[in-house]
């Protein structure tokens, strides 16, 4: 046996008897191959010594079962949301973020009105309670529950229909609407009493992409990390819209923040976030919101039309809904134009 052949079979752990004999004959006379064989032998021995049973942590099965319980619940919640609000990230993200992120995205759109009203409660949707934190202080943490406002059945179907037939825009397919870049000017006769701005906004139906970056970071102290990230964001002109705190069954807590960073600060912000702790996940996604925007805009106009034929309490309800949709449109528009959305997930 020559050295080449010997080195090829040295590494094998199942040798034929004649191969074994030929190899040991060779090793007896070739010190180079003998050293090589000694390396492999020593490494194998070291690896075998690593095989010592490690005690399984207590409560592991209970943790899995409790996760399965809560994921089943979350799954139902996520399924009840409109598809456009669901995330399409990696499996790991889907599992851990699904419900929470959908909530974050949804309430993100409602924050504009929350800023003005403090607390928003949409009649017919008792679970919608959005509260924001205008001072950007992490001390106030409000668990948020939400249901999808899009699921609210329109109260005046007839007027929606008439609005649809009245508007030349609405007779076009969505893609045409986007392509034609039509300007929509909506009008309303009744003004809301609770809002500071009353004129309906003008939105353009153009193709829109929102770039999202998700960071999942494990930190030593959640409050410290939250303070740091909020202070940094504030001093660097990054707007922070939502904070959501989710207590886990095992006593840990997860904080999720949603930031809108100007495109020019996005890299700097990413660098800062990556230094907060151990990076568990990072994901990037561009969400095409063109159709979603067109749908929302249509809803906006139908609400405005309904408002024309409403009075009293109904008008107030419609106003709240109109403002919520308007805020979502405004935010979507802004984010698509010049922002990168950061979803920052902090856990300990």
């Amino acid at each position: 046996m020559n050295c080449r052949k010997a080195k090829n079979i040295l590494v094998l752990d199942e040798l034929l008897l004649n191969e074994q004999r030929a190899l040991s004959d060779h090793l007896a006379v070739c010190s180079e191959c003998a050293v090589e064989a000694e390396y492999f032998g020593a490494i194998s021995k070291a690896l075998r010594e690593m095989n010592s049973p490690v005690k399984t942590p207590d409560g592991l099965s209970a943790q899995v079962i409790s996760r399965l319980h809560s994921e089943n619940t979350n799954r139902e919640e996520v399924n009840s949301l409109a598809p456009c609000h669901r995330f399409r990230w990696s499996q790991a993200w889907k599992r851990s973020l699904a419900a929470a992120a959908a909530v974050v995205l949804l309430i993100g759109g409602l924050m504009g009105i929350a800023t003005r009203l403090g607390v928003l409660s949409i009649p017919g949707n008792p679970a919608v309670v959005v509260k924001n934190n205008p001072s950007n202080q992490p001390a106030v943490k409000i668990p948020v529950q939400i249901t999808n406002t899009q699921n609210t059945p329109p109260t005046g179907n007839e007027s929606v229909q008439s609005q649809k037939s009245d508007s030349p825009l609405n007779s076009l397919p969505k893609s045409d609407k986007a392509a034609n870049n039509l300007t929509i000017q909506a009008t309303t006769q009744q003004q809301a009493t609770t809002q500071t701005t009353s004129e309906p906004k003008v939105f353009l139906n153009v193709p829109r992409l929102i770039e999202c970056i998700l960071w999942k970071i494990k930190v030593g102290n959640i409050n410290d990390a939250a303070d740091k990230v909020l202070v940094w964001a504030k001093t660097n002109g990054i707007s922070y819209s939502v904070e959501n705190e989710i207590p886990l069954d095992d006593g840990r807590t997860i904080n999720i923040f949603r930031f809108g960073a100007p495109k020019t600060s996005a890299d700097k912000f990413s660098n800062f976030i990556s230094g907060l702790g151990e990076i568990l996940e990072k994901d990037r996604n561009a969400r095409d919101v063109t159709d979603e925007f067109a749908d929302k805009l249509e809803k906006y106009h139908s609400l405005l039309a309904q408002k024309k034929n409403s009075d009293g309490q109904q008008t107030k309800q419609l106003d709240a809904e109109i403002k919520a949709v308007e805020s979502e449109l405004t935010l979507m528009d802004k984010e698509a134009q010049d922002q990168v959305v950061f979803i920052v997930w902090l856990q300990n």
């Binding site: 690593m50 095989n51 049973p53 490690v54 399984t56 942590p57 592991l60 099965s61 943790q63 899995v64 996760r67 399965l68 994921e71 790991a92 599992r95």
Partner: peptide, 30 residues
């Protein structure tokens, strides 16, 4: 769990990571 955890421990070389991995394995399995 013991078999999965021990394999996870050898792969990750970390007690905490093995714990996370084992959880994920059973969730995925379910």
């Amino acid at each position: 769990q013991s078999r999965v955890f021990n394999l996870g421990y050898q792969l990750t070389n970390s007690y905490a990571d093995a714990q996370d991995l084992t959880q994920e394995v059973f969730i995925k399995a379910y």
